[in-house]
Every structure is written in C-alpha cells, then in structure tokens.
C-alpha cells in the first residue's frame, strides 16, 4: 500500500471509529443539551472521516463506503483509543480530551502540508476539533472538581484511557518517508502540556502508568473492534452492490 493512502486511512479511520462511538451518546446523554452537543461532535468527526476516506478512495479507486463497509478489521488503521467501548460519561470526556487535543495539534500542522487535499481537510477540521477540546475541557473541569463521585469517576476514566495515548504519537517509516504527513512524535510534548494543564485544573491527577498499548496503526485491534464493525457494516454487507 502506498504511504499516502496508508496515512490518509489512519486519519480517516480515527475519525470514523470515533464518530461511531460518539454517536452512541445520542439519545443516551446525561441531559438533552448534551445529546445535541455530542451530536455536533459526532457529525464533525463523521464529516472529517468522509473527506479523508473519499480522498483515500480516490488514491486506489474505491468509494468512501467501500472503505468503511467492506474492509475487514485487520485493514482498519485507527487508534485503539477510538474503538474502546463508550463507558460512562467521564470516559467519553476523557477520550474526547485526549483525542481532540491530539487531532487539534495534528490538523493545525497539517494545514501547511504540501498535499492540498490534506491541508484543506485539516483547515476545516481544525476549527471543529478546537470546539471539541473546549467541550471536553469544560466537562473534565466540572467532573473533576464537582462531587466526590464525579471526581472519582473522572480520575478513573483518565487512568483507564491513559495507556492508549502513546499510540497517537508513535512514529514509523510511513510518516518519516511521507513529506506531506505530520510526524506525530513531534506533537507529544505540547499535547502532554495541554492535557496536563486541564487535568491539573480539574483537581485530578495526571495518570503516570507507563505501560502503553499499541497495534491499531498496523491493524491489530482490541476485541471490541470486531463488534463495532459488525454493527457498522452488517446492513451494507448483507446487500453487496446495493445503493442506499
């Protein structure tokens, strides 16, 4: 697979799988206003996924839907962080803080990529994810510095997802060879600074676990991914070749 395709799939799959999980909150959020807010987040993520998968598809003659619905698990390139089950609302906000802060730094850099399509997608997405960071931040502050129960849950969620964060910054030959890509290892320091500032202000402790999972970028996923894809793909796969 060529590097540009591989790279675009990574970004597109991150956004797609994140959207699939965020979408689970619609009709299940803690209050109506949050159903609407998370609906916006999910729609932004799905919009990014579509732009990126359309671009990826244009590189090897597939459509966004062929990529989303007719690839098997091992062909998906997303971070494991994005596919983990939804968990409670604290987990959702911890994941959004970690992921959107990463996406924000990434898209901000990618805006000046020599690849015009990637730069264009990033230019639009960077504003969307800035809002996601803000939304997650507001909630991490409120949950961390709210009640004893919310503090305990927020801390637990930050801890539970921390071991899935290093994968975001793993550099490899693909990003090193590909001049139009952002090498994510360059983002880690600033990411850590920003996330730490939010966690500190929320009165939670920044997790320190050093063990880190990996594998998503090479198609090795968690057990949860199979179920996620089964749900996402089953209608389309039951009617191959159909138009919807």
């Amino acid at each position: 697979m060529n590097d540009l395709l591989e790279y675009t799939l990574r970004l597109g799959d991150d956004a797609l799988i994140a959207a699939q999980r965020t979408g689970e909150w619609i009709a299940a959020a803690p209050q109506l206003e949050e159903d609407v807010a998370l609906g916006n987040v999910a729609l932004d993520q799905l919009g990014q996924a579509r732009s990126l998968l359309q671009y990826a598809g244009s590189l090897d003659g597939r459509t966004e839907d062929e990529l989303a619905y007719f690839r098997d698990e091992r062909e998906f390139r997303n971070l494991q962080l994005c596919e983990l089950p939804t968990g409670d609302f604290a987990h959702a906000m911890a994941r959004l803080l970690y992921f959107a802060t990463y996406q924000h730094l990434l898209y901000d850099e990618l805006r000046s990529s020599a690849d015009e399509t990637l730069a264009g997608v990033a230019g639009k997405a960077v504003k969307e994810v800035a809002y996601h960071v803000d939304h997650a931040t507001q909630w991490v502050l409120r949950l961390g510095d709210g009640t004893d129960e919310s503090h305990r849950r927020m801390q637990a969620a930050l801890e539970a997802l921390w071991p899935y964060t290093a994968e975001m910054f793993a550099s490899d030959d693909v990003v090193r060879r590909l001049s139009v890509a952002v090498d994510p290892s360059t983002l880690e320091e600033e990411w850590t600074r920003r996330v730490t500032a939010v966690i500190d202000e929320s009165t939670c402790e920044r997790p320190t676990s050093s063990y880190q999972h990996s594998g998503g970028r090479s198609g090795r996923h968690t057990e949860h991914m199979g179920f996620l894809l089964a749900e996402l793909q089953h209608v389309a796969r039951s009617h191959p070749g159909a138009t919807w």
Partner: peptide, 20 residues
Amino acid sequence: SLHAPDATMALRNARDVYTR
C-alpha cells in the same frame, strides 16, 4: 431558552442548540 449549570455551559449549549 435552555438549562445549564452555569454561564459558561449555557453559552456553549446555546451554540449547539440554537445555531446548528
């Protein structure tokens, strides 16, 4: 109108609810 715990969240909720 809408419900929110404080002004910061009220403004954000207003953005999400009334300017989609």
